[in-house]
Design a protein around this nucleic acid. Structure first.
Length: 307
DNA sequence: ACGATTATTGCGTTCTT
DNA sequence: AAGAAAACAATAATCGT
């Protein structure tokens, strides 16, 4: 790994740095993805990766890590290195006079005008702002968000923005980053956050995927169960039973071409029935964004293979 | 008895292959 | 283009209060 790719390296470390201690609740193994650290046994969310775990950004070698200034972030068009002129107070925190305030305001204005060196850079800033907005709306981990930003940069460098809107490509980048990280978001989850139509986003993502050859693992069904389970407030036993059902269904090969979150919801519903948990078809369907009939039909198919 | 939930069936639409 | 899947609708049956 060379220092010419500090961002990618930072991502990898960020993902791998997660807790490896056994689960404090049940002592089971923990599983860390880019969004959270969860116990594989009881589903306890140990860490949501939202805290600053002291990233060692600028370091000369692995041992002498030190914090020097703000972290470089791909989420800003200038990687967060631009100077921001403050206002109102001086370095010691005392208020400034009106005259000095006015001078600072003028400096700030002129600097912000000078910040965009080119049209392209302005577009980049626009796109990254959009990505930050969508990512925070979805509650994505910073590492995923940063990958989305990186993806957007690449797309722009490859001239993929020509004829497409920045907003669409920004949303597509977010979705692409999710897919690359095995995040269980569907395009239907991301697209509503965008300020353009869903088909624009889909188009942008298609281009992104084809031109860049994104390493997107196929959507795995089991990713959907934990999210739905927590949305529906299912117990751990139910969730685990549902996960078993998913595995059996995949093995039986009846999961091709089905709405993944709908199927996961059906597994959850059936698991809830087995354990006499109070989960109605309507609730399961609503959480998955499908109708009760879908839940029912999948439930029946599950019954036919579970014998 | 009543409302809520679940089952059953048919049919036009949307999506996958 | 063909076939499967999901949605929609109408109606019946079941269950708990």
């Amino acid at each position: 790994m060379t220092t010419s790719e500090p961002y990618e390296r930072a991502f990898d470390e960020d993902i791998q740095r997660g807790t490896t201690e056994p689960c404090p609740e049940c002592g089971g193994p923990v599983r860390t993805n880019s969004a959270e650290t969860v116990c594989a046994d009881c589903g306890l969310i140990i860490d949501e990766q939202s805290i600053d775990r002291g990233p060692e950004w600028h370091r000369d070698d692995a041992d002498t890590a030190k914090r020097t200034g703000a972290p470089l972030t791909p989420a800003r068009h200038d990687r967060g290195l631009s100077t921001v002129i403050g206002s109102g107070q001086d370095a010691t925190g005392t208020d400034l006079s009106g005259q000095k305030r006015r001078r600072l305001a003028r400096m700030r204005r002129e600097q912000s005008r000078a910040r965009w060196r080119s049209k392209q850079e302005r577009n980049l800033g626009h796109g990254l702002t959009e990505i930050r907005r969508i990512a925070s709306a979805l509650g994505l981990a910073d590492s995923v968000r940063d990958q989305a930003c990186q993806l957007f940069r690449t797309a722009q460098n490859e001239r993929l923005l020509k004829g497409r809107s920045i907003e669409a490509m920004a949303a597509a980048s977010v979705f692409g980053a999710c897919r690359c990280n095995g995040e269980s978001w569907l395009i239907d989850d991301v697209a509503p956050m965008a300020q353009v139509g869903q088909n624009r986003v889909e188009n942008a993502y298609t281009v992104l995927n084809e031109e860049l050859g994104l390493p997107t693992p196929p959507v795995s069904l089991d990713q959907f169960v934990p999210r739905l389970a927590s949305d529906l407030g299912c117990t751990d036993v139910v969730r685990r039973r549902a996960e078993e059902l998913v595995v059996q269904a995949v093995d039986a090969g009846i999961t091709t071409g089905v709405h993944p979150s709908g199927f996961a919801a059906a597994c959850l519903y059936m698991a809830a029935c087995v354990h006499d948990a109070p989960l109605t078809q309507a609730d399961a369907a609503a959480a998955a964004g499908v109708t009760v009939e879908t839940i029912r039909s999948h439930r029946d198919r599950l019954l036919s293979i579970v014998e």
